[in-house]
Design a protein around this nucleic acid. Structure first.
Length: 590
DNA sequence: CCCAGCACGC
DNA sequence: GACGTACGTGCTGGGT
C-alpha cells in the first residue's frame, strides 16, 4: 500500500473511485452522507487498476486512509472521477480532503451531451466500445441484493479496479472532445470549481423546525380527514380521493357536472387543478376535492416527509444537487428536492417557515430580479427593452405603458398582470393561443397584445427568429458562456414536435445563461467565504436564488459579498439586480 | 415495477 | 379539427 501511495504521489493525475455500503439497510438510494467506505480504487496508467479494501472497524479504516491522505490532498495532482462529489463527501467522513484540480467524467459528458444520461457503463460502451462489469453483477439485484460490505473483496476487486481504469480512459477521450467543441473553459472554469461548492452546501445541509412541522401536521391531518368524511358523505361511497380516476367518475359519471368532459390520452377524465377550478361553482364537492388535495400534497411531500430525512449525525437535511441532469445547464435537487418548497399557497407557507438557520444565526436570502427577462434584453440587444431596464422602472409596468400606449402612472394592475404573463410567455416562446389561455382573454386580444409587444420590442422578435434559425442550422443552442444544448426535432414536418423544438431554441439559451451566471456567483461567493475565514454558510440554491445561514456578526459583510458577487458575476448591457432579505426563517427572508 | 396523473418550484 | 410556455422531482394509484 505504501508503494501504491508513493506511485500516486508522483503521478500528475490519477482516477479514483470508492466502493461504499449504506449503513441504513432501508436506504435504496446511495446517500454519501450515510455511506460507509468499503474500498478505494485507483488508476494511474491505462489498463492498470488498484483496489484497496477498507475494513469496517473505523480506526483501522482511518489508519489505512492515512497512507493515501497526501496523495488525495495534493494541490498539484489532477483527480479524476465519475461523479467525484460523491467520493469526496464519503472520503471527508474519514478525514480525507481531495485537493487539487478535478476532472469529473460524468460532468464532462454532460457538458458535451446535456440531453442524455451519463452513467459510466453507457459511456464506456459509447466511447470505449467496452462492456463494463455492472454494479448488479457484483451485489445482485432485487430481493437478494447484498451491500458491497457483504461481498468479499476478491469478488469486488475486478469491478472496482475496472471502474477506476475506465474513468481514466474516459477522461483521456473526453478532454480532447471538450477541446474540439470549445467547451474546456466552461468545464474547467465553471463546472469543476462548482463541484466543491456544491459539496460544501450538501454537507452542511439545512435546519428544519420539526416542532413546528409536527404541529402543522396534526392540524392539517385533522382538516384533511374532516374533508375526507364530508366527501365520502356526498359521494355516498368511501372512494379514494387521491385517485384521479375515481374523482373523475364521481364528477362526470355520477354527478354529471359537465356534458363533454375533457379526457386524457388514456381515456380517463381530466381532474387537474385548472379543470376543477372551472367547475367550482357547479358543486360544493369540487372545492372540497381541491382542498383535500392541497393538504394531502403538503403532508405527504413535505410536512410528514422532511422530518424523516434529518441526518442523525448532523441534525440537518441534506439534499443532493445534481450537476448533470437538466438539458439547459440548471442544477436539480433531489432526496429531498429542496428546489420546490411551497411559497405561494397560504398553507404551503408553513413548510417554508420551517426552514431555519443554525442556532443563534439568521436566514439570508438573495435572488436575481427578473434575470431571464434581463437576459432577453441583453441577448436580443433590443434598445427599448434595454432602456426600460436601465430606467429602473418596474419592467412589467414599463412594458404595459408601451403596449397599452398610456403614461406609466396610468398602468392598471390588470394591464400589468397581462403584461407580466406576456413577458413570461416571451421567454418560453409562447403562442397566441397559449397566451390567451394564460391571460384569460380572447384569442384576438392576445394576438393584438403580442403584435403590440413586438412593435414595442422589435429586437426581441428578431432575436427569437434568429434563435430558431441558428438552432436549425447548428442543431444546438448556445449560452453566453458557450454552453450548448442539443435541439431535437427542429426540422420535423409535424408542427407539434417542431413547435416544441422551436420554443426550446428560444428558451434554452436564456435559461442556460441564467444558470451559468448563478454558478459563477456561487463559486465566487464560496471562495470569499473560505478566504475571508467567514463562518456563515451558503446552504441552498433555487435557480435564481441563494440562501445562507449567517452568524450575526457577519450580517453586513455577507450581504455585501453576496450582492456584489451576484450582481457582478458578468457584465451585461442591463444591470443585474439582486433582492436581499433577512429573517428568522426562509419565508421571512424571501 | 413502471407509467400516468397530479402538483410543487423557477 | 387538433394543438399549442421552458426546466425539474415526488407522491399516489393502478395496471402489469
Amino acid at each position: 500500500m505504501k508503494n501504491l501511495a508513493a506511485k500516486l504521489l508522483s503521478a500528475k493525475e490519477f482516477a479514483l473511485d470508492t466502493e461504499t455500503a449504506s449503513w441504513d439497510k432501508n436506504d435504496k438510494t446511495v446517500d454519501p452522507m450515510k455511506a460507509e467506505l468499503v474500498g478505494l480504487s485507483f488508476s494511474i496508467t491505462e489498463n492498470e487498476g488498484y483496489y484497496v479494501p477498507i475494513p469496517a472497524e473505523r480506526s483501522e479504516a482511518i489508519n489505512i486512509l492515512k497512507i493515501f491522505e497526501q496523495a488525495y490532498a495534493s494541490e498539484f495532482i489532477l483527480k479524476i472521477g465519475h461523479n467525484i462529489k460523491y467520493d469526496m463527501i464519503v472520503l471527508s467522513h474519514y478525514d480525507i480532503t481531495v485537493g487539487g484540480p478535478l476532472f469529473d467524467t460524468m460532468i464532462a459528458d454532460y457538458v458535451l451531451y446535456s440531453e442524455r444520461p451519463h452513467k459510466m457503463d453507457s459511456l464506456a460502451e459509447a466511447y470505449l466500445k467496452y462492456k463494463t462489469i455492472h454494479y448488479e453483477d457484483v451485489v445482485g439485484s432485487g430481493r437478494q441484493q447484498k451491500t458491497m460490505r457483504e461481498v468479499s473483496p476478491s469478488e469486488v476487486v475486478n469491478y472496482a479496479a475496472e471502474d477506476a481504469d475506465v474513468t481514466l480512459k474516459l477522461k483521456h477521450i473526453l478532454e480532447k472532445e471538450l477541446e474540439q467543441r470549445r467547451l474546456t473553459e466552461l468545464f474547467e472554469d465553471i463546472e469543476m470549481p462548482l463541484v466543491r461548492v456544491l459539496m460544501r452546501m450538501e454537507m452542511y445541509g439545512a435546519r428544519i423546525d420539526t416542532t413546528a412541522l409536527k404541529e402543522t401536521s396534526a392540524l392539517f391531518t385533522e382538516k384533511m380527514l374532516e374533508i375526507e368524511r364530508e366527501i365520502h358523505d356526498i359521494a355516498g361511497t368511501e372512494l379514494n380521493i387521491s385517485s384521479p380516476k375515481q374523482i373523475g367518475e364521481l364528477l362526470f359519471d355520477k354527478l354529471k357536472l359537465v356534458d363533454k368532459a375533457k379526457k386524457t390520452k388514456k381515456g380517463q377524465y381530466v381532474t387537474d387543478e385548472a379543470t376543477l377550478q372551472a367547475l367550482k361553482g357547479k358543486h360544493k364537492v369540487v372545492g372540497m376535492i381541491l382542498d383535500y388535495r392541497g393538504y394531502k400534497k403538503l403532508l405527504s411531500t413535505y410536512i410528514d416527509a422532511l422530518p424523516l430525512l434529518i441526518n442523525p449525525r448532523t441534525g440537518h437535511i441534506h439534499t443532493s444537487y445534481n450537476q448533470a441532469v437538466t438539458s439547459t445547464g440548471r442544477l436539480s435537487s433531489s432526496n429531498p428536492n429542496l428546489q420546490n418548497i411551497p411559497i405561494r399557497d397560504e398553507n404551503g407557507k408553513e413548510v417554508r417557515k420551517a426552514f431555519i438557520p443554525d442556532e443563534g444565526e439568521l436566514f439570508f436570502s438573495a435572488d436575481y430580479s427578473q434575470i431571464e427577462l434581463r437576459l432577453m434584453a441583453h441577448m436580443s440587444g433590443d434598445k427599448t427593452m434595454i432602456d426600460d431596464f436601465n430606467s429602473g422602472h418596474d419592467i412589467h409596468q414599463a412594458t404595459a405603458a408601451k403596449i397599452f400606449k398610456c403614461p406609466i402612472e396610468d398602468v392598471t394592475s390588470d394591464m400589468r398582470r397581462k403584461t407580466k404573463t406576456a413577458n413570461f410567455g416571451i421567454i418560453y416562446g409562447i403562442s397566441a393561443f397559449g397566451l390567451a389561455e394564460r391571460m384569460e382573454v380572447s384569442r384576438t386580444e392576445a394576438k393584438n397584445l403580442i403584435d403590440e409587444y413586438f412593435q414595442t420590442y422589435p429586437g426581441v422578435k428578431t432575436y427569437m427568429e434568429e434563435s430558431v434559425e441558428k438552432a436549425r442550422k447548428l442543431k444546438y443552442t448556445e449560452t453566453l458562456f458557450g454552453r450548448q444544448c442539443q435541439v431535437n426535432g427542429i426540422d420535423e414536418h409535424n408542427a407539434v414536435v417542431r413547435g416544441y423544438a422551436e420554443r426550446n431554441a428560444i428558451n434554452a439559451p436564456i435559461q442556460g445563461t441564467a444558470a451559468d451566471i448563478i454558478k459563477i456567483a456561487m463559486i465566487r461567493i464560496d471562495k470569499r467565504l473560505q478566504e475571508e475565514g467567514l463562518r456563515s454558510k451558503m446552504i441552498l440554491q433555487v435557480h435564481d436564488e441563494l440562501n445562507f445561514s449567517v452568524v450575526p456578526e457577519e450580517k453586513d459583510i455577507i450581504e455585501q459579498i453576496v450582492r456584489t458577487e451576484m450582481e457582478n458575476a458578468t457584465q451585461l448591457s442591463v444591470p443585474l439586480i439582486v433582492d436581499c432579505g433577512w429573517g428568522k426563517n426562509w419565508l421571512e427572508a424571501h
